[in-house]
Design a protein around this nucleic acid. Structure first.
Lengths: 220, 220
DNA sequence: ACCTGAACACCGTTCAAGT
DNA sequence: ACCTGAACACCGTTCAAGT
């Protein structure tokens, strides 16, 4: 599997081979997390169970507990990886430009790992590695002239927006129950709804991000 | 248990007692749903299991399956009740006023039953009884002068916003992991974050709703 | 005809027995 | 000292045996 022996990146080059490695490469925390991420992306976070993970790694479920405190700890380590994927916030540009590119990076990370939103929503977990991004958002909001109270409010809105977007588009993408419901709605009873349904769907995120930034930054 | 014999509200008063009721009152679908709602409100949706529900109703888990197809069907019936709690959308007022009061009603219902957002988010379910509210939102957006494409986009944003709000405030309310994380952040490393954390928290929903409506309705 | 106990295939986690 | 099989307390759901 990919990343079975991480961090063995050359400082050992030229040294004699390590004595008598165990028959199977030792389970590394990074391997567990990588495998969990792969399962989560392919089948959703519900498929990431300790037993399933152990099976995938050819071990017993209890072996995992030597590298991971419990399932919550595993989820947190998965969130660390996703937080790193968001990347560093930009240092130049107008406050609005900075906010915009942070939000787009956040959104891209959420889109790549939609299960993240479920983990944050259901389990209330978060990675400390996202803090630089959060700090940069507050910095941009302050630079835009917002008071502390206004910035708190604006930050909440921006996060809620990207959260909600991923949450809903995740199920809208496939032929979800909710989508079938709207399509099956009686046009006579819900005329406005019917007009909308016939319109083809696009990705609303970029447009709506500009609308939100309009509401937050202009005119106060 | 509470609600074992619902709707026995007096139209039988003065009548002779019913002949030979079965030893235990028959299980009604409404009783099951009511009990499930009570558990969900008190302990979250994860506590609503078929086995727990049966225990609460003094029956076997399999008896529930005579009134409910499966757990998904139960969740849908619970969503029906919440959708009814949202109430009828207003028929008068400016488009903005109508949108505003619909959103506030929706938000109030979500606040009363935060588990709804998890069910919609994780299971992708929805109740057809919410369709009148959705239709009214689209009607207001059309009356405000938005094109079909603009209204679709705006509708998505409004729903995403209220979704995200409930999702995040649900965990922010209690002393969640995410909240402890922000509070534990190093002020030297994250100066902007530190300023915010010391500010006391309010409910941002009403303010942010106006910001979102500003962005959506003004200036196009 | 109706109800339901036992069973099946899962889950996270503990704990003591095994090497 | 280290690893892990069996066990515990859950879960949704099926199915056949019971009345």
């Amino acid at each position: 599997m990919i990343g079975t022996i991480p961090r063995a990146t050359g400082h050992n080059a030229g040294m004699p081979p390590r004595p008598a490695p165990p028959r199977r490469a030792a389970l590394a925390a990074a391997t567990i997390v990588d495998t969990a991420l792969r399962i989560a992306r392919a089948e959703g976070i519900a498929a990431v169970s300790m037993r399933r993970l152990a099976e995938e790694l050819d071990t017993s479920p209890m072996s995992l507990y030597r590298h991971v405190d419990d399932r919550e700890d595993l989820l947190l380590q998965m969130l660390d990886v996703v937080a790193d994927n968001v990347g560093s916030p930009p240092r130049s540009g107008t406050p609005r430009e900075r906010l915009r590119s942070i939000m787009i990076a956040l959104h891209a990370a959420f889109r790549r790992d939609p299960w993240v939103v479920q983990v944050l929503a259901v389990d209330g977990l978060a990675s400390p590695r996202i803090l630089p991004v959060v700090d940069a958002m507050f910095a941009a909001l302050a630079d835009a002239g917002l008071s502390v109270a206004q910035a708190s409010s604006a930050y909440a809105l921006l996060l809620q927006f990207s959260f909600g977007e991923v949450l809903m588009s995740h199920h809208d993408a496939e032929d979800s129950y909710a989508r079938r419901l709207v399509r099956a709605a009686d046009p006579a009873q819900f005329p406005h709804l019917a007009r909308i349904v016939t319109a083809d769907r696009r990705d609303y995120f970029d447009d709506n991000l500009d609308r939100v930034l309009d509401g937050l930054l202009s005119g106060r």
